[in-house]
């Protein structure tokens, strides 16, 4: 009996981390759908979310909510700058996919190193955003922060669903994901949508980073691991499908959590990679995806 409870407990914790991976994965999809680009600097948004919030809160003594808002703004600015300064010139030159990947990876490195120079390499953490004790659901203890992660993630996913189905911009972005050239012919401003995609994706990434920081810690070099987990989640869900991506994130978080219980924390990433390879070999279109090249 205690073992079953423990297992359930790990499932809940895993799902909490999974929500964060899911948000990172959605960030990948939003840019990919608008532009066909996989942004390898996605992790820098997640890292900045946590690090900037911490810095504003700790050094400038701003209230946590204001600091978080500041972090989101910084991330969005970075997203838009990445699009304007790096992606757009390469896009106009019709650079190969590989060059685009390398350039965005270089952006990741530049942001990471700048962060290291400005705030140093000490790990930093945030207090839980809601300050009350854990919630007891029968035998399971739900950490308030994990509950908060669930709530915010679900709200965001619902909000994005509305955005993609009800607003003109969201619909135009979906049109782009189906056929960019046809969308352009119909008068949809594709390059402006790519900028919107980068801004939106950066905001989602930053929120993911802010949410996850109180449950673990963050540091300048945590962007790439989060990006890889998010990318794996996006593939599990069927690349380009934001809601599939969120499911993929949940699945990955739970897998990692179970691997930690069974084989120790060091094996988490080995298991993520194993899940990725199994999916790529057996079901490359992912959970909810349709085969698309």
């Amino acid at each position: 009996m205690p073992e079953a409870t423990l297992l359930l407990q790990f499932l809940v914790t895993g799902a909490g981390t999974g929500c964060v991976y899911g948000l990172v994965a959605i960030g990948f999809c939003v840019i990919y759908n608008a532009s066909g680009i996989v942004n390898f600097a996605q992790g820098s948004f997640v890292m900045l979310g946590g690090v900037v919030t911490y810095s504003l809160w700790h050094a400038l003594h701003l209230p946590l909510a204001v600091a978080a808002l500041g972090a989101i703004i910084v991330s969005v600015a970075l997203g838009v700058l990445t699009d304007l300064l790096v992606v757009r010139p390469l896009w106009h030159r019709r650079a190969t996919m590989f060059v685009m990947i390398l350039a965005t990876l270089a952006v990741q490195i530049v942001v990471e190193r700048l962060t290291l120079i400005v705030v140093g390499d000490a790990p930093m953490s945030l207090p839980p955003i809601l300050s009350r004790g854990p919630i007891h659901l029968g035998p399971i203890v739900l950490d308030t922060q994990v509950a908060f992660i669930f709530a915010v993630s679900l709200l965001l996913v619902a909000g994005l669903r509305l955005f993609f189905t009800r607003t003109a911009t969201g619909r135009a972005m979906r049109a782009c994901s189906i056929d960019r050239d046809a969308a352009a012919l119909l008068g949809i401003p594709v390059s402006r949508l790519v900028a919107v995609g980068f801004a939106l994706s950066a905001a989602i990434g930053a929120i993911a980073g802010i949410l996850v920081t109180p449950t673990q810690y963050t540091a300048y070099n945590l962007g790439v691991p989060f990006a890889i987990s998010g990318f794996i989640a996006a593939i599990l869900g069927g690349f380009g499908n934001p809601f599939g991506a969120f499911l993929g994130g949940l699945m990955l978080g739970i897998t990692q959590s179970l691997a930690t219980v069974a084989f120790g924390a060091g094996t988490r990433n080995v298991f993520s990679l194993a899940v990725l390879l199994i999916f790529l070999l057996l079901r490359p279109q992912g959970l909810l995806g349709t085969a698309k090249t």
């Binding site: 010139p89 650079a95 060059v99 350039a103 270089a106 952006v107 490195i109 530049v110 190193r113």
Partner: peptide, 20 residues
């Protein structure tokens, strides 16, 4: 090294954009 990687990253981006 921190500054070095920063410089490498910037050089790489510039090369990719300006002189592939």
């Amino acid at each position: 090294r921190d500054v070095q990687d920063l410089v490498y990253g910037v050089v790489l981006i510039l090369i990719l954009i300006r002189a592939p």
